[in-house]
């Protein structure tokens, strides 16, 4: 009997490399719970090595070209298998004006683990793995992102805010998978920012926060605040947001709203940080992200 938790990939599975999304839907309708969709594999293969998952079928998205592409047509439509590095390059290189408004997305991509993992890991994988610490999730929540979910019989688009159910859990049924993530193009007077606290840059967040502000003169016309690693799912700080929208912006307001966000979150103590530490730094990074997002408003 082979010992467990060796970090070597023992588990046996059948590997599928479809070239169209319809084939993926077909395979999932056939194999359901016994299958797992693999995008970059950086989470799934670790889970399989640790024997936390033992799928009999692994369905790779690697050969589905359309899921690696990003298109812009009123919204950014990002194929679920787009690598984090490719997404960052698209936003910063192809669309400098967009890059300024979506600075939070670039920042989250840049602080996303190591260079190697940025090349391998995907946006869809980061969301579907549903870690409470997923760096892209708070950013996408503040961008009002939606996800398109496909099965053999149906296709639907749902707000990302409704996608997460708990640590490692999403609303995806056994026959469903994510094809695209959509981000509405932010208005011109939008600014955003992302802040992350971790032991070293490449490490998993102890706390992270994303902010989007729509500015009208000195007034906050609209805003979103979301945090990671502070609740069972990526967390929208609604009370903090309510205290921000419609107000005249300034350092005192940022301080006040940061405090509200820190009171709203439900952090746990674990190997990475204590609950009290998370609450303390959540205040700081929300306040700082608000100040930066305000500065970034064009």
């Amino acid at each position: 009997m082979l010992s467990t938790n060796t970090h070597i990939l023992f588990s046996e599975f059948e590997y599928h490399a479809p070239t169209t999304v319809n084939e993926v839907a077909e395979l999932l309708s056939e194999y359901g719970d016994s299958a797992r969709v693999m995008a970059g594999g950086t989470d799934l293969l670790v889970q399989m090595k640790m024997e936390r998952r033992r799928p009999a079928h692994v369905i790779s998205l690697q050969r589905i070209n359309e899921l690696h592409t990003i298109t812009q047509n009123g919204a950014l439509t990002i194929g679920a298998a787009t690598a984090i590095r490719a997404l960052d390059q698209y936003v910063t290189l192809n669309h400098p004006s967009l890059g300024a408004r979506l600075e939070s997305l670039s920042a989250a991509c840049n602080l996303f683990s190591s260079v190697q993992i940025m090349h391998m890991a995907t946006l869809g994988g980061n969301l579907c793995n549903a870690s409470p610490a997923a760096d892209t999730a708070p950013v996408l929540l503040t961008c009002d992102a939606t996800v398109t979910i496909k099965s053999k019989t149906a296709e639907k688009t749902v707000p990302l805010a409704d996608f997460f159910v708990g640590p490692g859990k999403t609303i995806l049924g056994p026959n469903e998978f994510v094809t695209y993530i959509q981000i509405p193009l932010p208005a011109q007077n939008t600014g955003s920012a992302f802040r992350k606290i971790s032991r070293v840059v490449a490490d998993i967040s102890q706390v992270c926060a994303a902010v989007t502000i729509v500015r009208d003169g000195n007034i906050v016309q609209d805003a979103r605040i979301a945090l990671g690693s502070v609740a069972p799912v990526p967390f929208c700080a609604e009370q903090a947001r309510a205290a921000l929208v419609g107000e005249t912006f300034g350092p005192e307001l940022a301080e006040h709203v940061g405090n509200l966000a820190a009171q709203e979150i439900k952090p746990i103590s674990d190997v990475r940080a204590t609950s009290a530490y998370r609450r303390s730094v959540a205040f700081v990074i929300v306040r700082d992200a608000l100040m930066q997002a305000w500065d970034n408003c064009g």
Binding site: Y15, G41, T42, L45, S60, Q62, V115, Q116, H119, M120
Partner: peptide, 18 residues
């Protein structure tokens, strides 16, 4: 680490078939 088409990746997390 291995270079794949010039990009550095962690080969422990890549199936050889890919």
């Amino acid at each position: 680490g291995v270079l794949i088409d010039g990009v550095v990746v962690n080969s422990c997390l890549l199936l050889a078939w890919l």
